[in-house]
Design a binder for these strands. Structure first.
Lengths: 217, 217
DNA sequence: CTATCCCTGTGTGCTATTTCACAAATCTGT
DNA sequence: ACAGATTTGTGAAATAGCACACAGGGATAG
């Protein structure tokens, strides 16, 4: 593997970028590792060390130029140009994702959405029409899609992932509550709100007298 | 801090639980650290070490009883009984979250949803009605809500978080694309699909001849 | 021009996390 | 009852990640 930058560093860069975008919006011209760190709850040394993996972007005594550092981070993350993405699953979640303006604002364009349910195929979501999942392989190749989001039930997610990969997709964001098995060269990230909630409840106290009853199984 | 178990360990437990739930659904009675690890892409030693923080749950030569380990993990994560949650923001995302069956299936109950837009207040989502955000403080206390999900635009998220905390909320799942400033004793987790996408693009190649144009700023 | 202050980039040591590897416990088949 | 095959729980070793602290470049003010 020719990539020496730790994965955990890469995963922090988008947060730095997000903070910089907000500063830029507010017209701020320069910032410092200290200020960034305070905003993000990270030590300033960590930020400097992370950035040092890629070059020297700051000026001693001054700090970082917001706009310049932002450009550099975009270059590093390869998000200067638009990426097309496909969404699989046109349920409530799929709808919310297709309609989410944040993708476009941050250089991701939802180019197509698929569903396997014949009743959903053809219905419009925003400016798109739901396409038939049986056409997915072909359409992915046509559109040269490299990134996809899985928003189907857990039981179908593995099959969908395999189909996506066969269609040329190299990065998958999986909303289905299941760990997927993918080749090493395919990137995968998971979003599961319940998992996030469950790691917080560990730290909570059960104070309430009347505990709410569990769902019967 | 009386809690010696590393945070990173706590964050893996829900994944173990999720895999166990699936095994239980399939009628599987016993499993092993090896099998769990294979499913989750984690080493078996890691799983054994993680579990050892809390006790001895397996039998040498046999492995773990799926049902027993599942119960234990639920106990450790304090999710044996139902937790009530509040959702703030009744946009597309808020709708999808309120309608998401996965919360209820995994012992979280969406008890209320708020929005600040008078036009949305009173409209039904599933079996709930959108409540006015100005009533939030009072309602949170009435319902004794400890967990909330923020699904409002970034510019309002900090204010909403502060209000939630004042209302007694101790754990926040934030979907707004901004890092929030909260007291140490409040748990916070973030979900931002764009951040997830951006850490994957780093690993992708820009192969396509015709790069898609960036959104003009 | 000089003194002072500010802030980066980084070598170094420290802490946290993961992996290794093995004794002991349990099961299976004969 | 015993040999061989499994699999746990866990010290010890290895690896990874983080924070400290400071030299040195640059800004500022007088």
């Amino acid at each position: 593997m020719p990539n020496s930058v730790p994965n955990i560093v890469i995963h922090r860069l988008p947060f730095y970028l997000r903070a910089l975008e907000m500063m830029a919006e507010n017209g701020q011209v320069v910032t410092s590792s200290q200020e960034l760190g305070d905003r993000l709850g990270i030590s300033s040394a960590q930020i400097r060390k992370d950035l040092s993996h890629f070059g020297e972007f700051g000026k001693q005594g001054t700090g970082y130029e917001v706009d310049y550092l932002r450009q550099q981070l975009r270059r590093i993350l390869k998000i200067e140009a638009l990426w097309g993405i496909a969404i699989v699953g046109a349920g409530d979640l799929g709808h919310a994702l297709v309609n989410y303006a944040g993708f476009r604002e941050r250089n991701f364009l939802v180019e197509t959405v698929f569903d396997m349910d014949p009743k959903k195929v053809g219905t419009p979501i925003g400016s798109l029409k739901v396409e038939d999942q049986s056409q997915m392989l072909q359409r992915l190749k046509e559109l040269d899609i490299k990134i996809a989001i899985i928003a189907v039930p857990a039981r179908n997610a593995q099959t969908v992932a395999e189909l996506l990969i066969e269609g040329g997709v190299r990065a998958i964001l999986n909303y289905a509550p299941i760990t997927l098995n993918v080749p090493d060269e395919v990137c995968i990230e998971y979003i599961d709100p319940v998992i996030a909630l469950q790691s917080m409840t560990y730290y909570l106290e059960r104070e309430s007298m009347e505990q709410k009853r569990a769902v019967s199984e």
